[in-house]
Amino acid sequence: MDAQFPSHHQLLSQGPRLKLPPPDERRQRRELWGATLEEVASALNVEPATMAAWEAGRYTADAADTYAYLRLLNAFRDQLPTGHEPDWAALRKPPTSPASAAAVPAQGAAERTAAKPARRGASWTQDEKDYVRTAFLDGTAVPELADSLGRSERSVRWVLYHLRLIPFPADDVPDPCAKPEKPKVYTVEEKRKIHPNAYAPWSTEEEQLLAERCTHGASLAELSREFGRNQGGIASRLKKINAVGPAAEEAREYGGDDSGAAL
């Protein structure tokens, strides 16, 4: 035997020279067997994103993982039904977006009608979700997915999260809404700048004069100006003294009660 070649004992002692098939063939074997990336990832105990990187040739596994992956790929190939010849050209086609897929004729049917363009805020279809899953695992970035589907990047990230392909997008959660400000509490002095007699007690003479002015047809607005009190206080006092007149009718519709009688 030529000295430059090792003996069979030496060759076997060196262990297997692990070499995976090209990325296109890795995917072809898996798809021909009918397995999804998630199923292969689960079988090899890795994350789907890692499995997608192995299949696409973007990441090299260690020797043990490479050996397990190679054995699985070879099993896919060797255990196919005898005489089965796949359509290799069809298997090499990249995933198409839902919009472009409308131009592909359906098997045994007429050509599909053009899909309606996706819009921001519209409900996600199952075709779009399937496309996002396949394209993302093939290495398509979120901005590219958003552009191809007419969606916002935030919307794409939430879909990827619900597909369990990325962690929870905490950065996309809005800050808690601020509590509404409480109405400003005015002091007696501030109210008396507008209504000089606000919160002042009513005298008997004022109540008699208020009843007379109401009987003579004065309105709530006129009585508010004359007595230096707001209309709520006037309305409450008119109801309390059982006044009669147009202002008293306004008071019943105004909604005032005895709690504002001092105003």
Rank of each mutant, 00 (worst) to 15 (best):
M1D: 14
D2G: 02
Q4Y: 06
F5D: 04
F5Q: 15
H8R: 10
H9T: 15
Q10S: 12
L11N: 10
L11M: 13
L11C: 03
S13F: 11
S13D: 15
S13M: 15
G15Q: 00
R17Y: 00
K19W: 12
L20R: 04
P21E: 15
P21L: 11
D24A: 14
R26P: 05
R27K: 02
R27E: 08
R27Q: 03
R27Y: 02
R30G: 04
E31Q: 10
W33E: 15
T36Q: 04
V40M: 11
A41Y: 02
A41E: 03
S42E: 14
S42L: 12
A43N: 07
A43S: 06
V46D: 01
A49M: 08
A49C: 13
A53M: 01
E55C: 00
Y59C: 12
T60N: 14
A61L: 01
D62V: 02
D62E: 07
A64E: 00
Y67G: 04
A68D: 00
R71E: 11
N74Y: 07
N74Q: 14
N74W: 04
F76Q: 14
R77N: 10
T82L: 15
E85Y: 08
E85C: 02
P86H: 03
A90Y: 09
A90R: 12
L91V: 09
P95V: 15
P95G: 03
T96Y: 10
T96F: 09
P98Y: 01
A99M: 07
A102N: 12
V104I: 14
P105D: 06
A106R: 01
A110L: 06
R112E: 15
A114Y: 14
P117M: 05
A118Y: 04
R119A: 14
R120L: 02
E128C: 06
K129F: 01
V132P: 05
A135V: 12
F136N: 10
F136A: 13
L137C: 00
L137H: 03
G139Q: 07
T140M: 13
V142L: 05
V142K: 12
P143T: 13
L145D: 03
A146N: 06
A146L: 06
D147Y: 11
D147L: 11
G150W: 07
S152F: 04
S152D: 02
V156F: 07
R157K: 12
L163Y: 08
I166C: 05
F168M: 12
P169E: 11
D172W: 09
D175L: 15
P180R: 14
P180S: 13
E181C: 04
P183A: 11
K184C: 08
K184P: 10
K184G: 08
Y186R: 03
T187K: 04
V188S: 04
E190Q: 02
R192D: 00
K193W: 01
K193L: 15
H195S: 12
E206I: 09
E207N: 06
Q208C: 11
Q208M: 05
L209G: 01
A211R: 13
A211W: 03
R213S: 02
A218F: 01
A221F: 09
E222W: 05
S224N: 11
R225N: 07
E226F: 00
N230L: 13
G232D: 13
A235T: 01
L238C: 06
N242A: 14
A243I: 09
G245L: 03
G245E: 00
G245M: 01
A248Q: 12
A248H: 08
E249M: 00
A251N: 09
A251R: 06
Y254F: 08
Y254P: 00
G255E: 00
D258S: 09
L263C: 13
